[in-house]
Structures are given as structure tokens and as C-alpha cells.
Deep mutational scan, measured.
Amino acid sequence: MLEGKVKWFNSEKGFGFIEVEGQDDVFVHFSAIQGEGFKTLEEGQAVSFEIVEGNRGPQAANVTKEA
């Protein structure tokens, strides 16, 4: 699992990017966010995740919000 911070997330469109120190930003789709209820992320929020190869390159999977 990697750790990063949410760079930005558009809850209307359901996607955004996660910043990872020393690496390129990683695309995140709302469907990759773990948990119940409305799936969104806040700018600057700490998250842990895995990287998988998507249709358009690397993207986040199994995203969990850090306490």
C-alpha cells in the first residue's frame, strides 16, 4: 500500500488525483474508494491505496481514508 494526499477531487464528476511524494500524481475514480455511503475525498486528505494499470495508465485502487 502507498500513502498520499488528495490533490483535488471533483465529487460531481467522481474523480480526482492523489499526490505521492517522489512520484507522478495518481488518478482516482470514486468507485475505488472503500467504505459505505457517498464516496468522495477532500483536498489534502491523507489516503492509502494501491496502484493498478487502468485503460489510460496507472490509477488508484482500494483507496482508504486515513484517520
Rank of each mutant, 00 (worst) to 15 (best):
L2D: 04
L2M: 13
L2G: 09
E3D: 11
G4V: 01
G4K: 01
G4W: 02
K5G: 04
K5C: 04
K5P: 02
K5D: 03
K5A: 08
V6K: 00
V6P: 01
V6Y: 01
K7E: 02
W8R: 04
W8L: 04
F9Y: 07
F9G: 01
N10G: 04
N10P: 02
S11G: 06
S11V: 08
S11Q: 11
S11A: 09
E12Q: 13
E12R: 14
E12P: 11
K13M: 10
K13I: 07
K13E: 05
K13H: 07
K13C: 06
G14S: 02
G14V: 01
F15R: 02
F15Y: 13
F15I: 05
F15S: 03
G16E: 00
G16W: 01
G16K: 00
G16V: 01
G16Y: 01
F17S: 03
I18D: 00
I18T: 01
I18G: 00
E19Q: 13
E19H: 09
E19G: 06
E19N: 12
V20Q: 08
V20P: 03
V20M: 12
E21D: 14
E21I: 10
Q23I: 08
Q23N: 10
Q23K: 12
D24H: 13
D24T: 13
D25S: 10
D25W: 07
V26F: 06
V26L: 15
V26I: 14
F27T: 01
V28I: 14
V28D: 00
V28G: 01
H29K: 02
H29M: 12
H29A: 03
F30R: 15
F30S: 07
S31D: 05
A32Y: 05
I33P: 01
Q34C: 06
Q34T: 15
Q34G: 12
G35N: 12
G35Q: 13
E36V: 15
E36F: 06
E36K: 07
E36W: 09
G37F: 06
F38W: 13
F38E: 07
F38C: 05
K39S: 09
T40A: 12
T40H: 09
T40G: 14
L41I: 07
L41A: 04
L41M: 08
L41K: 01
E42C: 07
E42S: 06
E42D: 11
G44T: 05
G44L: 05
A46N: 12
V47C: 04
V47A: 02
S48M: 12
F49K: 00
F49H: 01
E50N: 14
I51Q: 05
I51A: 06
V52H: 12
E53G: 12
G54K: 09
N55F: 13
N55H: 15
N55C: 06
N55W: 11
N55T: 11
N55L: 08
N55Q: 13
N55M: 12
R56G: 12
R56S: 11
R56T: 07
R56E: 10
G57E: 03
G57R: 08
G57L: 05
G57S: 08
G57W: 07
P58H: 15
P58I: 14
P58C: 04
Q59L: 08
A60H: 01
A60Y: 00
A60R: 00
A60Q: 00
A61S: 07
A61R: 15
A61N: 12
A61G: 10
N62M: 10
N62Q: 08
V63P: 01
V63S: 01
K65P: 08
A67C: 06
A67S: 15
A67R: 12
A67G: 14
A67V: 12
